[in-house]
Amino acid sequence: MAVVTRPLRRSWISHDLVVSTVTVVTIITAWTVVTTVFRVSPLILPSPRAMGDELGTLLAVGYAGKPLYVHVVASILRSLTGLLAGIALAIPIGLAMGYHRTVSAALVPVFGFFRPIPPIAFIPLMILWFGIGELSKILLIFAASFNYTVLNSAAGMRAVPEQLIRKGRNLGLTRRQLFTSVMLPAAMPHIFTGVKTSTAVSWAIVVAAELIAAQEGLGFIIQDAGTFFRITDVFFGILIIGLIGISLELVISLIERRTLHWQGK
């Protein structure tokens, strides 16, 4: 029966992997060709070879007196703290909004108002209210992750099929059982979509947050290197942010495929 889809999907993954690899190789080749053939100044676009040399330096002496990993870990920790706090608060509030019309009506104007505003618009206020330390950075990430997960959790709760609720009531479930055993699992795909978006956003925001007078972090490297015209390091900052972003997404997709495979996608 549907068992047939397994080998089919596996062959698709390897097919996708080949195509994706071709793309990456093509880009690096084009990059090399452009920088060597046209002799582009390394102040505009450093060649892959120059990047390689700089990687050696970065790994050996680090950046701004701190080893490279300190910058990476600093960014990841900020992002993760804000993200986890954000979704930990967003999921229960979102579920309550989806469950109770009154809660939803009370909170929708607040979250609906903040959602379309780019989080970086709040940077000046964050500095004004919470200073230039860790708190303002983490709060910014927190607010951004909260916003996406809260709305998706509420939508997930509202999207629970009426038939499943009826079935649960029919089987004699208590209100509590109905919530924990029927509505919550049924809402999981939506909640997960929210968490996924929040994760991506929190990683994107950390760089913006680190533009606020940070002393370490990938955002700091980009900011600092830009100021001192160390363009290769600017590119490195961008490269590392991108690679970690992709890894995050892969990890989350893997968790999703493991836990929410029952959606049959």
Partner: peptide, 28 residues
């Protein structure tokens, strides 16, 4: 109110998609 003394068989299969066949049947 609804209750397990009057069990409904719906026209379209009302199953919990995150449970196996066995768990769906044993759920009630």
């Amino acid at each position: 109110d609804a209750g397990p003394d009057r069990i409904v068989v719906f026209q379209t299969p009302a199953l919990f998609p995150w449970m196996t066949v066995r768990d769906n049947i044993a759920f009630g």
